[in-house]
Design a protein around this nucleic acid. Structure first.
Length: 261
DNA sequence: CCCCATGTTGTAGG
DNA sequence: TCCTACAACATGGG
């Protein structure tokens, strides 16, 4: 479920476990999707190298390498990291990195929609791919400017990584639930105060998500179960519904969340 | 068998 | 140009 809060926790996890250790060996499953690199180059670059520091932009995690450049992760739908005892083979993992403390960092990605790569510069990478500012870095002013003339549904706009990076399907539902706005509302019909509320809820929900994921391994949402027909989490007496917006299932309470068209 | 699933990218069409 | 819908990617669950 890697949206911004999950990726932020992967970043903290690397910081805690994997910095400043020499990489002894790297094994790579040939099913892994590589970004701007080859299997050979990735192994050659990482072996003997050291993870120095980490950073994040939206759902991307960057690890600065001592010998220059960055290792970049995108977790797709099912990717995750584990710092563990080394096992004999890569079986079950997409990437296995052994450090000189005889422990390993593994990347597992069952659905193989994630990507791993090598880049020289984060700023260039973000610009090349035309990603918007990180959802926790963007100012309220910039947020309003970005959204004010967008004609799409507010949910699609919040999830568009080229406008704002980091918000995905689940967190967008929670943000809009807390802001009391129907996800299908037209962005350019929303007033400035409403957009400001959405901005504030975006900050709150992502920050709380980071804390929840760190504490419990998962977020604790109002719109948690992603099912329709459940009692509204605000206990308004109505029931949650689901509708497709931008091709994604969106859960909401039709009573608490105002549709503005 | 069917449909669905947290993500991204590319295409076609209005 | 902007937006929507859809398919593709790969795999598992109900």
């Amino acid at each position: 479920m890697p949206e911004l809060p999950e990726v932020e926790n992967f970043k903290k996890y690397i910081d805690k476990t994997s910095l400043n250790k020499e990489i002894k060996e790297v094994e790579l499953a040939n099913t892994i999707l590589l970004l701007k690199t080859s299997e050979k180059k990735l192994i050659k670059t990482l072996e003997g190298n050291v993870f120095e520091s980490t950073s994040r932009h939206g759902k991307y995690l960057f690890i600065q390498l001592k010998k220059g450049g960055f290792l970049v992760f995108h977790f797709g739908m099912s990717g995750y990291l584990e710092y563990r005892e080394c096992k004999k083979s890569i079986e079950g993992y997409s990437l296995l990195i052994s450090f000189n403390d005889n422990r390993c960092l593994s990347y597992t990605d069952k659905r193989k929609l994630g990507k791993i790569g090598l880049i020289k510069d984060i700023q260039d990478f973000v610009e090349d791919r035309a990603y918007g500012p990180d959802a926790l870095q963007i100012s309220e002013e910039e947020f309003l400017e970005t959204l004010i003339n967008k004609r799409g549904s507010i949910k699609s706009v919040l999830m568009d990584q080229h406008l704002i990076a980091g918000v995905g399907n689940e967190y967008s539902d929670e943000i809009l639930f807390q802001a009391h706005i129907d996800p299908e509302s037209k962005t350019d019909r929303l007033s400035k105060p409403v957009l400001s509320t959405i901005f504030e809820k975006m900050q709150d929900v992502l920050q709380q998500g980071i804390i929840d994921v760190a504490r419990n391994g998962k977020k604790q949402f109002f719109i948690e179960n992603r099912k329709s027909g459940l009692p509204c989490p605000s206990q308004c007496g109505d029931y949650t519904e689901v509708k497709k917006i931008g091709g994604r299932s969106s859960y909401f309470c039709p009573n608490c969340q105002k549709l503005i068209k």
